[in-house]
Design a protein around this nucleic acid. Structure first.
Lengths: 308, 308
DNA sequence: TATCCGTGATGCCCCGTGAGTATCAGTTCC
DNA sequence: GGAACTGATACTCACGGGGCATCACGGATA
């Protein structure tokens, strides 16, 4: 009465049969398998009973494999190979030689730290594949907590319980203007100069905290900004600025390699601050592939090593 | 001390783990598997020990699958499916719904009974694939005895022990001549009329008995034939006749659909006789696929059923 | 023809191990 | 602060795989 859930047969049967089919000789096959010949005979008979088919024709002058036996071998062989490969594959995974890491990032990460990290990581861990997705902060924190995501580059809003984070960047934002904008030549810029300029921002749901801090910065400068568009991903926002539809915020690090139609200007006085962090779940502890990625991502930005 | 030959794990482990990974709940998974929960816990722990990897992270609020666990599932799933499919596939084979039959034939068989048999067989047994090879008699009998071949259409020479045969055709040979041959218009032909005509025959090694009977037929007619070419396969011999290089023997059944450049003439008086049989190994008994083929091949030629 | 060798199959016993029951240990929720 | 979950642990039982000894049978050999 144990074993209500019946397997059709055991791996034993298949391995034993394969050996007999290879050697066409019970005694020698039993020797190879390091079992006694009667045990082998019984196992094969058992397998034949389970499959209700005769797999071998035993005659005095040796053993022959029937058509059913050949079919069984054909089917079995690749499966046994596959099963045999599993332990070493798992070892490779455990040792971090191979693996997969799902990583999300924001436009700022891609414009600053990420390319370097990806380059270093692929050089050091060619066996680990990264699955990269651009994704806003709010979606990232949710996906991290549910385990859909291994780690993410995002802009922390409220504190994120159950996540560990490592800061990569903390910079005051400047303003990205169309090159033809009247304020473009003006070098030290203050927020209140921008009262009349339409702004392009990310949708508020993507990072309510940061969004509100931006509005608060305007308020404290005594102005109410005009939000012309909420757009995502980031690159599209820069595209709109380039097309002359408005201005947007940007950190100095991000303001490299800009197209000629736009100009970056730092802000004098209070300005919203951007933080870029790398975040991952505190529990369970990172698997080797993720640990490797966290190590590289940490090293690529600061000499100090990442915790854990 | 039993089980010197260690399998990395048992199918049990994989099936159990798959179920836990599906349900993410030990108790429910155990229920589905119709075992008690402790047994399941131990099996999973065992598997983790065998693989030296943690596959699940157990927490109060449920179970999660680790990266290693996901890899294991990915690898395991298709293999388990494959194993599960084996029994029914073997049943299908045993019942003759599917299968493979290696069949050899000679040119005469293809020119007479075989096309009809193939047509009938594929209609009746669409799941059984035939592997057809043109092969001379001597090679067929050797291959049949060694088991390389399931059955063959050939021309029995000496008696073939260990083979069973079923006669399909027995006909006196006539002569195939180039249409321009001086003897072509001559309706009743005798062997001795052909003394000066070069003959195209199959290589003697392909069927020494029949070859010698042909020569004997000439001898008894008082002539020694001129063998111009020994050629194989059969179709090439007919090609040579067509090209005017000589004559060859042929049965009336075979002499259908001839090209216009050749003429068939029966022989008056002693003439070599061709027998076409279907042969297969007496032991082991035919598997269902072969049995199906033998049945069709027998029925296609004679109303009487095949023995066995 | 009698003997021996080698084949795979059987009979019998042992004990390893998978599984069951009862229970524990730790959370979460009311 | 229990009640009701979770998965893990402790003990016991018995199924069945495997070992050893032996059989049954055929072929080779003298």
């Amino acid at each position: 009465m144990p074993r209500e859930y019946q397997f059709p047969f055991e791996l034993r049967h298949l391995v034993y049969f394969r050996e007999v089919a290879r050697q066409l000789h019970f005694r020698r096959a039993a020797e190879t398998l390091a079992i006694a010949q009667p045990a082998l005979s019984r196992a094969i008979m058992q397998l034949e009973a389970i499959l209700k088919t005769s797999l071998l024709t035993r005659s005095r002058r040796g053993v022959e494999v029937t058509a059913a036996g050949r079919l069984l071998i054909e089917r079995t062989e690749p499966l046994l190979r596959g099963l045999a490969a599993i332990p070493s594959d798992l070892q490779a995974l455990a040792s971090g030689q191979v693996g997969r890491v799902r990583v999300a990032f924001t436009g700022l990460a891609m414009a600053t730290v990420l390319p370097r990290i990806l380059h270093d990581f692929h050089r050091r861990h060619p066996g680990i594949r990264l699955e990269l997705t651009e994704s806003p902060t709010s979606a990232q924190t949710a996906a991290l907590q549910s385990g859909e995501l291994a780690c993410g580059f995002f802009h922390p809003d409220t504190p994120t319980p159950a996540l560990r984070t490592h800061e990569l960047l903390r910079e005051r934002n400047g303003v990205l203007l169309p090159a033809k904008h009247p304020l473009a030549p003006r070098m030290p810029l203050r927020l209140r100069d921008l009262a009349a300029t339409p702004f392009v921002l990310f949708p508020r749901t993507h990072n309510p905290g940061f969004y509100d801090r931006i509005l608060a910065a305007f308020s404290s400068a005594g102005v109410t900004p005009r939000i012309a568009e909420e757009i995502w991903p980031r690159a599209n926002g820069i595209g709109l600025v380039r097309a002359g539809l408005g201005a947007t915020f940007m950190t100095p690090s991000e303001a490299k390699n800009l197209p000629p139609e736009v100009t970056f200007r730092p802000i004098n006085g209070p300005a919203p601050e951007s933080r870029l962090v790398l975040g991952w779940r505190a529990l369970p502890p990172p698997d080797p592939a993720l640990a490797a990625f966290l190590a590289i991502a940490g090293a690529a930005t600061k000499p100090a090593r990442l915790p854990r």
